[in-house]
Design a binder for these strands. Sequence first.
DNA 1: AACCTAAATGTTCAACAATTCGTTCAATCT
DNA 2: AGATTGAACGAATTGTTGAACATTTAGGTT
Lengths: 210, 210
Amino acid sequence: MSGKDTVRCKIVEAAKKRFSHFGYGKTTMAEVASDCAMSPGNLYRFFPGKLDIAEAIATEDFEKHLTSLRKLAVAPARDARQRLHDLLFEELRRTYHKLEKDPRAYEMASVIARERPEFANWMLATERKILVELLEEAERRGELSCDDKEYVAEMVQSATMKFRYPQLWSKLTLPALERELEGVLTLLIQGICPQSLAHQRHGRVTTVPA
Amino acid sequence: MSGKDTVRCKIVEAAKKRFSHFGYGKTTMAEVASDCAMSPGNLYRFFPGKLDIAEAIATEDFEKHLTSLRKLAVAPARDARQRLHDLLFEELRRTYHKLEKDPRAYEMASVIARERPEFANWMLATERKILVELLEEAERRGELSCDDKEYVAEMVQSATMKFRYPQLWSKLTLPALERELEGVLTLLIQGICPQSLAHQRHGRVTTVPA
DNA sequence: AACCTAAATGTTCAACAATTCGTTCAATCT
DNA sequence: AGATTGAACGAATTGTTGAACATTTAGGTT
């Protein structure tokens, strides 16, 4: 996205340090500017505003996250259920730990979510594409089949909403959240009624019971 | 719960009018008291505090809701999927319309949720009992079977969290929410992979594919 | 001309003051 | 004695004001 040592990148780095150390609200444009040895006004030649710097940081972080999700979605050694498990748990743990370790991240997340709802939508839609990839790969391998994968992916996201920004919606601990996610995942894969006890054993899912 | 024209009931009725007309925050204890032709101090012989009056109103309302949910959970003419559908949709529509029609209700809901988290937990647990009833009834009828019904009920609630206080977590319209809930419900009942295309047709669920 | 600065501007925010309101309780009434 | 009152207290809320801040822009520098 942004070249290595461009001015733009310098600004993002400076802001990253300030934001994570003092928080978004307590960081002034003047401080970020002086860290880059420039005047506050000059920042506006590179970013439309303060929020856009925060968005750039969030985007950079999210892109990193995405590549690891993409790997999990099509991992050769794991079956469909395991891959979905890996994906959802990676998501849960990443955001949980991020918000756990510094409450500054929480502040940034809520400011962006409030002021730039379209950004959150973009992230959701991007991750949905990965879910679709997972479903397509599963079909290719004959693990499961469903016709409208975009729709199914959307519903999976809807059902796992609670685990996306965990501490925004509940005060549950990570183990409690993991237990719930495991349960929801099982429901999503198998339905409420375990159709075939044999297949259920190893969580294997087939298109048509043998 | 509370007899018809007791003093306690008079207070609740007066508060109900004030709260829904002016909002919880803009209603003073003095006003409620004067509506009941008594002094502010006397209210405290009947309620520990202002929040407890709001809680009494919410409880009364919730109890009404509960009886209609209980009927839906064991309706004789409908199969398990339909009953779960009815239950979840009733829940969604009720709260959506309640918060739609007067934004005062929204204020009350969030004050209670913030100040009295145990109340929200109690509501969730009470509704979960109804879900368990539904599952037990389904097993009796041979519609589906699962061993730990308390656990399954908890997971169903977890997966449908988004639809419980709709406008608290998204700006979606009612039709959009209904479409999503329908999709999540299907996933929960059938799992991602439709095991038997024949059974899937009418959304019928059986314990073991014939 | 491209790049940057620094002062100007209008908005946001925090600290403080004033007021209102929930709650208590000593006094009053029945 | 038990029920009720209403003045009194402190917590919370509101209103206000001044400083701090994000953003703009008129200039200066190379």
